[in-house]
Nucleic acid binder design. Structure first.
Lengths: 164, 164
DNA sequence: CGCAATTGAATTGCGCGCAACCAAATGGCC
DNA sequence: GGCCATTTGGTTGCGCGCAATTCAATTGCG
């Protein structure tokens, strides 16, 4: 399955290029697919809670830090207002958070979990265990993988920001 | 940064649950963030080619396998027609592929790279090297990470399909 | 003080990912 | 041949994710 018969036309670089391309395909596919597969499992597990995966991420941050302005929320999650604003509006409609303009800085919007939102934390306690079970990995492996992915993200962000 | 002062209210499970939750946050965040970070780097690198990341994935498959029906493309990429149909339509508009109903099975639509689409392969040869450089990882590490992510995807897909 | 620059959210537009639904073609069965 | 389930793509609807724009509030600077 991993054997290319021969590049049919115009290879301006030596054969090694094809190896790069194959490697690229690997990491391309595997990361993309893993991300979507994770999303799928979270979708199933979170259905009971009425949360999507990104909404769950938001609630995780709010459970840990309490009330936060949209800006801070975005920094934790690497998301901007273009993504967060409608998402938070939906969470508010669902009765899980409240959004109110800060008194001392009218530009800022404070996001605060409601009673219901805070209560949801208890129902969410089962989630991590079920996710870990779905991975079939040991906690140690997950931790390791996590660390690697974090390194990767840091490097990629630097590269993207640094121009190329 | 990873120190929770103390769970303020109603923990029905012993403290270990908080560790699960933290671990979940880790893998949650790291995978999600890594996926988006990768997407961001690809966005930059692929801009010259006029391709998005998923479009690049489609072209990779077509470059390797030649003409394929939409169904097969979807199997390679784990994507369904809901995603592929509009994407392929855009690739066709861009002049990179042609779509034509199969003669012997009118249900099937064959996707074939055009001359221009095939030619794009040469311009894409630089991409993998630039991506790998952006990761700051060695080829070996990438290979390893890829393999792990592939395992992860397989496990997660099984779990999602298997009901839980 | 007044005015420009900056900041924080919201909005718009577009592409992806997926579920749900639909239509046409095919193949099996009587 | 007629009737059915299955297969294959397409369409719709909704929720991200991100770039670009807009707008109000704030800050900084003369």
């Amino acid at each position: 399955m991993t054997a290319t018969p021969n590049p049919p036309a115009t290879p301006p670089l030596p054969g090694a290029a094809d190896d790069w391309l194959r490697l690229d395909q690997q990491i391309c596919f595997s990361l993309h697919a893993a991300s979507r597969a994770f999303n799928g499992v979270y979708r199933v597990v979170l259905k009971d809670l009425g949360l999507t995966y990104p909404q769950y991420l938001v609630m995780l941050v709010l459970w840990e830090h309490g009330t936060l302005p949209v800006k801070k929320l975005g920094e934790h999650l690497r998301l901007d207002s273009g993504t967060l604003s409608p998402l938070l509006k939906r969470l508010e409609t669902a009765g899980l958070v409240r959004r109110e303009r800060s008194a001392r800085d009218e530009r800022s919007v404070e996001v605060r979990p409601t009673e219901e939102g805070a209560a949801l934390r208890e129902r969410a306690r089962e989630v991590p265990r079920r996710i870990l079970a779905a991975t079939g990995f040991e906690g140690e492996e997950v931790r390791f993988l996590s660390a690697r992915l974090h390194e990767l993200t840091t490097a990629l962000d630097r590269a993207a920001a640094g121009g190329a």
